[in-house]
Amino acid sequence: KKKYVIKVYFEDTGKEVEIEAESKEEALEAAKRLAEELGLKIKKVEIYP
């Protein structure tokens, strides 16, 4: 089964997080949740198959 690796870059902090997920949708949801939890804004998202 294919996994996606999503790199999320946050504004202000210069922080980046990698998330593995089964689908792009799932990964983007996780990225949004994470940003909310951390109180950060997402600057850029890169998706690698």
Rank of each mutant, 00 (worst) to 15 (best):
R33I: 07
E22H: 11
A30G: 10
K7Y: 05
A35T: 02
G39S: 07
E16S: 10
Y9R: 05
G39I: 02
E46R: 05
G14C: 09
V8E: 00
A30L: 15
E37R: 15
K32T: 10
E20H: 11
E16Q: 06
Y4D: 00
I42R: 00
L34Y: 11
K41P: 07
E16D: 14
F10W: 11
E29M: 15
E26Y: 15
D12F: 14
E36H: 13
V5M: 08
I42V: 05
E37M: 15
K24F: 09
K44D: 03
I19Q: 02
L28A: 07
G39K: 13
K43C: 04
K44E: 06
A21K: 08
E22S: 07
E25C: 07
V5E: 01
D12K: 14
L40S: 03
G14Q: 10
K3Y: 13
Y9T: 06
E36K: 12
E37H: 15
Y9F: 07
Y9I: 09
A31P: 01
Y48N: 11
K24D: 09
A21I: 11
E11H: 15
K32N: 12
E18K: 04
I6E: 00
R33S: 05
L34V: 13
V45G: 01
K3C: 06
T13R: 15
V45Y: 11
S23T: 09
A31W: 07
Y4E: 01
A21Y: 05
Y4N: 01
A21F: 06
I19V: 06
V45L: 04
V8D: 00
L40K: 03
E46W: 12
T13E: 10
D12C: 10
K44Q: 09
E46C: 05
K1I: 14
E46K: 06
I47P: 03
T13H: 09
A30H: 13
E25I: 07
I6N: 00
I47H: 09
D12I: 14
K2M: 13
E36C: 10
G39P: 01
L34R: 08
Y9P: 00
G39C: 06
K41S: 10
Y4S: 01
E46N: 06
P49Q: 15
L40P: 01
E36G: 13
T13W: 08
D12R: 15
L34S: 03
K1W: 10
Y48P: 04
A35L: 03
I47S: 06
K1Q: 14
G14A: 09
K1P: 14
E46F: 14
K7F: 06
K41F: 11
Y48L: 11
K15S: 07
E20Q: 11
E22C: 12
E36I: 14
F10I: 01
V5Q: 07
E36Y: 15
K44N: 11
L38M: 13
I47R: 02
L38F: 11
K43I: 11
A27M: 02
A35I: 03
L40I: 03
E16C: 04
I42F: 03
L38D: 01
D12L: 13
E11L: 15
F10N: 00
E37G: 13
V45A: 03
K44W: 07
V17F: 10
Y48M: 10
V8R: 00
D12Y: 14
A30M: 12
K2Q: 09
K41L: 09
E36M: 14
E36R: 15
K1A: 07
K15P: 08
V8A: 02
E11W: 15
E25D: 13
E26P: 01
Y48G: 09
L40Y: 15
E11K: 14
V45S: 03
L28N: 09
E20I: 10
A21N: 02
L34A: 05
T13K: 12
E46L: 09
K44A: 07
A30V: 11
Y4G: 00
K1N: 11
R33L: 06
I42L: 08
Y4A: 01
I6V: 04
T13F: 09
E26S: 10
E20L: 09
E46G: 02
V17H: 10
E37N: 10
A31V: 11
E22G: 08
A35N: 01
L38G: 02
E18G: 04
K41Y: 12
A30P: 00
P49E: 14
K1R: 15
